[in-house]
Design a protein around this nucleic acid. Structure first.
Lengths: 201, 201
DNA sequence: AGAGTTAGCACGACCGGTCGTTCTTAGAAT
DNA sequence: ATTCTAAGAACGACCGGTCGTGCTAACTCT
């Protein structure tokens, strides 16, 4: 059904679309999702506004597709490398290690795409906010589940509520990101690493 | 010298200026400092664009004055109540208690003005970014100094670097704020309180 | 393999609206 | 009397989005 109605994507169109989305994901961490304008984005990649518009029905559709693109990159940079181990405690460590590493390498120029977007869209309403909130919830739930498993395996003390530990770990990641970006100072990532290390032992 | 050249402020002008700045500080936590437009702000308070413009030389001047206004409110709501005690550990507890309380009471509708602004301006350049960065640095330094004093007084273990403790406390505040706003969920503030309680003992 | 067809892709021009800013004028506070 | 305060009008630039046109990739048919 969906296949029948779907637009026939040409290879050059697919290349253009990916180029647009990657540029949008980068720009979003500098100017915000809402701060991106079609005109500036088009100029940035050397394309006309209407050419860009052919790929998305609206600015909102562009924003939603940008989020999906950022999520794919995040999965590739952070989530998938942590699958290398089945041990829950080791996986937690790897997740945050990859997280801070991708921030430091400026995979997205303005740090973590999602840390940035969560702050930006907090007070908004609509599908963009809903999508960001859902992604954050899923991430947090995944961390809490790993904490639960590590506690069951005896790797972590069992006296803390998993959601509380997940909150604290996310807090270190968030503050490490914000501080690193705001002050262009790697020391904030070191603080985050030290805090995570201390919390996960 | 400055007094001689300064513009003679009328009482009605001062009232208008404060009204503008208070509205701007509130809107900044919803739409961002850059997301505020002169037109929408003017309409929001029932004033003309050019009437508003008479108070500020430029949008940037408006943003800087907005930051100053937010800082006054923050001092009143968070910093000054903590001066009630001279004990450094007690002061730390009070600072974060007041911080989370002002977020929960939505003193600014979108949570902490500075948490929001720090995320937003991280990748920008100019006086607005510099001002936000300076305020964050001063806050962090103050927290670290209080940690140092509490350690010297024997109220906190002396084995942690004060800047590391300050980082972790700020992390809880930041994540508590972001989570509360994004999900409209007080549980995030409870997580923050529990984390701060655990860290300050 | 080549020709014809289809529709995806991209452009420039255009639309009504909004942006930050400037100017002029008139009422009001001091 | 002076000048602060505020409004309306206007400017050029830019916003998201639309429309008509022409090039090009992919598909079908011979």
């Amino acid at each position: 059904m969906a296949t029948t109605l779907a637009r026939r994507q040409r290879s050059d169109g697919e290349r253009s679309r990916q180029k647009i989305l990657r540029a949008a994901a980068n720009l979003a961490t500098i100017e915000g999702l809402e701060g991106i304008t079609i005109g500036r984005l088009a100029a940035h990649i050397g394309m006309s506004k209407s050419g860009l518009y052919a790929h998305f029905g609206s600015k909102e559709q562009l924003q939603l597709a940008t989020i999906d693109t950022a999520l794919e990159i995040y999965d590739r940079e952070v989530v998938e490398p942590a699958q290398a181990t089945a041990d829950p405690l080791e996986r937690l460590r790897l997740l945050y290690d990859r997280f801070l590493d991708h921030v430091e390498r400026r995979v997205f120029p303005g740090g973590c795409f999602f840390a940035s977007a969560e702050s930006e869209v907090g007070m908004q309403e609509g599908p963009v906010k809903d999508r960001i909130a859902a992604i954050q919830r899923a991430w947090s739930a995944n961390i809490a589940q790993l904490v639960r498993e590590a506690q069951a395996a005896g790797s972590l003390p069992g006296d803390d509520e998993p959601a509380q530990v997940a909150f604290e770990l996310d807090a270190y990641g968030m503050m490490g990101n914000v501080g690193f970006v705001l002050h262009d100072e790697p020391l904030y990532l070191e603080h985050a690493r030290a805090a995570i290390h201390r919390r996960l032992r």
